[in-house]
């Protein structure tokens, strides 16, 4: 049976099924090519995990939350600044240091998402994850493009032949054109995933290994377990903090947490972030310190 002899609706059904087969095939091929046993990576680095899960934005959000919890950043509603007592040797992680430096001048927490210098700090992470096969490197991207090209050719050739036939017979081809474009877009969408199949599996494994944090986070008190807080935010997202004792994340990143759980209270100060005035008060407890002024150690070197 020649499918091009099919009438309009029957051909549309055939093309729909054909598209599913093509998309399914390139998806399976991609997963097979990109799967593999979990690599050895630093599962204890919250910034690596956050970057794997959500890129620079998530990792920077984790850095801010962690530094606020440790009292190195003080917040006044959505505005944060480096605490007065902070010196360079108090943080070992270069990302944390750069975040502190940025907030030597007070600014809104979400302004870090637009800072290209901070974003560039994650290039080594990207390289590390590419080497581990968790994010697509140049070879993987080339293979993806090749598979997509073949898929688009298959979808295009079959679609275009029928469109030409249809036009030559004066038949309507609008539905087929729409379906062809949709199939191509979906094929491209399923091809260009941010993570490799191995990366996606490893991320799921990390989430599984840290699943105990979901219940444990509610028993943590601000300032007492920063490593666990940072890892919770890295694994489950800053948004997931909205309903925990670390609800100040809601104040710092209202957009990130708005889809999580906060309703009418979004944007308002809670007990851990409320500040009366900018008087340079205590800044030693996470989220509790308020005030203006500069940053003694981290903004100046």
């Amino acid at each position: 049976m020649n499918p091009f002899d099919l009438r309009g609706p029957e051909f549309l059904l055939f093309y729909f099924c054909f598209s599913l087969v093509v998309i399914f095939t390139i998806t399976i091929l991609r997963r097979r090519a990109e799967s593999g046993p979990a690599p050895k990576i630093d599962l204890g680095d919250p910034y690596l995990i956050a970057y794997l899960r959500g890129g620079e934005q998530e990792a920077l959000g984790v850095a801010v939350i962690s530094l606020v919890d440790r009292g190195m950043l003080v917040m006044n509603d959505q505005v944060i600044r480096c605490a007065d007592h902070v010196t360079r040797d108090m943080v070992k992680h270069p990302i944390e240091y750069e975040v502190l430096k940025k907030f030597g001048d007070p600014g809104e927490a979400h302004s870090i998402f637009k800072d290209d210098n901070l974003k560039s700090m994650f290039r080594p992470y990207r390289d590390k994850l590419e080497r581990a096969g968790l994010m697509p490197d140049a070879d993987v991207r080339r293979d993806r493009r090749m598979r997509l090209l073949l898929a688009l050719m298959a979808l295009g050739v079959v679609g275009v032949i029928k469109i030409v036939f249809g036009l030559s017979l004066g038949k309507p081809v609008g539905f087929l054109v729409v379906m062809m474009i949709a199939a191509m877009v979906i094929a491209a969408f399923t091809t260009f995933k941010r993570l490799t199949a191995r990366g996606k599996e490893t991320l799921a494994d990390v989430t599984n290994l840290y699943s105990g944090l979901r219940t444990r986070v509610n028993s943590l008190s601000p300032g007492s377990a920063s490593a666990e807080l940072a890892m919770f935010a890295a694994v489950f997202g800053v948004a997931a903090l909205a309903t925990t004792p670390f609800g100040y994340a809601r104040t710092l990143f209202p957009q990130a947490t708005s889809s999580s759980s906060c309703g009418s209270s979004c944007g308002s100060s809670d007990s851990s972030s409320s500040c009366g005035s900018s008087d340079g008060g205590s800044s030693s407890d996470g989220g509790g310190g308020c005030g203006g002024g500069g940053c003694g150690g981290c903004g100046s070197s």
Binding site: P37, A38, P39, K40, I41, L43, E201, T202, A204, D205, V206, N208, L209
Partner: peptide, 13 residues
């Protein structure tokens, strides 16, 4: 399956 794969990931570390 997911939990066991997570255990293998732990074993890789």
């Amino acid at each position: 399956r997911d939990e066991r794969r997570a255990l293998r990931t732990l074993a890789a570390q």
